[in-house]
Nucleic acid binder design. Structure first.
Lengths: 194, 194
DNA sequence: GCGTTAGTCGACACGTTGTCGTGTATCTAT
DNA sequence: ATAGATACACGACAACGTGTCGACTAACGC
């Protein structure tokens, strides 16, 4: 119990790390579809048979990485309600979101930039639209709805992701706080989620 | 000049059509990445060598189809300004947009649904954000900007695409006019593009 | 009708994929 | 520290998709 085992076998963790980083490096050069398992293994200096002992194919590897990034986001954000908001102070939830993206910049550049990773964008969009929908439901429980919550939620989710992508593409010229502020400013006061 | 040649060789047009429809049919079943040229040719009943005489690979085929859909959208929408708008009458530009998507439902289901076609979404997002940005620039030429036009434009573009995707996924429960109305209603009056 | 061109056919070398069995290094638990 | 389990490396393998070739046939446009 002297050294915390962190988790599992050291060799396994190393292999996973090597393969993931090799994939990321490869994706920075050419699109995912035309990266072969051989390419990944060669760069990772891992034998190809070893790859197949861990993943079914390259999609499984990508899926796991995506999943981990997604879980990290959930862990950071689950205790932050997106509703707490005053006009001058940008809501901590959205600030945190931008910080999270900045922190994992390399991954999000691949996921949201260029042709993007459709699968991850879908995951993220569903998560955000759920978050927004829940907030909307809490806010006007008795208030008359001018339009379906679902539309509003998907509208916001798409907008957020698009702005995130723009932010990354511009090499993050504004701070997370500024971006969070602008993001909600777009929506206008009194239009919900304010 | 009796029968209008439409364009070019009949055989070529037939082959293009067959290959494109085969690809669409195939994409309705399995994701694009794991569709082989052989699959497409088999379904299209076209010899594989013929495929390679027209396209470099399956990506080229997809690209051409995308391009044609995109050009069709431009042709329909270029003479419709997105700005002409009164609160009760939804703007013709957005109504037209929804109608266009409904008209080519099968393609847009593939492009925006599931994992989507990242490349096309990127094309569409850039087009929409340009459109929005131009409108914004015209509207308040002298008005003080509360936030960068670029952010606003990308915000709107992402929102529109996301709502379109939702609409298709729900099997289009609302009319194009209703959707266009809701789309702008989200944004709230006085928040630009109104 | 005649020349041109698209399409078919079979075959080829090449790279990638996924899966073996065997041997070796390295981790975990006692 | 040692013994047993397990991850990894290695080489080989068949199966498949890819992209290209030359020669033959069918269909189109003028």
């Amino acid at each position: 119990m002297k050294s915390s085992p962190e988790q599992g076998d050291l060799r396994v963790r190393r292999t996973h790390k090597l393969l993931w980083e090799a994939l990321m490096a490869e994706m920075a050069v050419r699109p995912f579809e035309q990266i072969s398992v051989s390419d990944i293994c060669e760069r990772a200096m891992v034998h190809r048979t070893t790859f197949y002992k861990h993943y079914e194919d390259k999609y499984a590897l990508l899926e796991q990485g995506m999943r981990q990034m997604y879980d990290a986001l959930l862990a950071e954000a689950e205790h932050l309600p997106p509703s707490a908001y005053s006009v001058e102070q940008p809501p901590p939830y959205f600030v945190r979101l931008f910080e999270h993206v900045a922190q994992h910049e390399r991954f999000y550049r691949l996921a949201l930039g260029g042709d993007g990773i459709g699968r991850f964008q879908r995951l993220l969009r569903n998560y955000l639209s759920d978050k927004v929908a829940n907030t909307l439901r809490e806010e006007h429980t008795a208030g008359a709805l001018q339009f379906p919550i679902a539309i509003h939620a998907h509208y916001m989710a798409g907008a957020i992701i698009s702005v995130l992508a723009w932010w990354l593409e511009q090499d993050m010229p504004l701070s997370s706080r500024e971006m969070a502020h602008y993001l909600l400013a777009q929506h206008g006061p009194g239009a919900g989620l304010s």
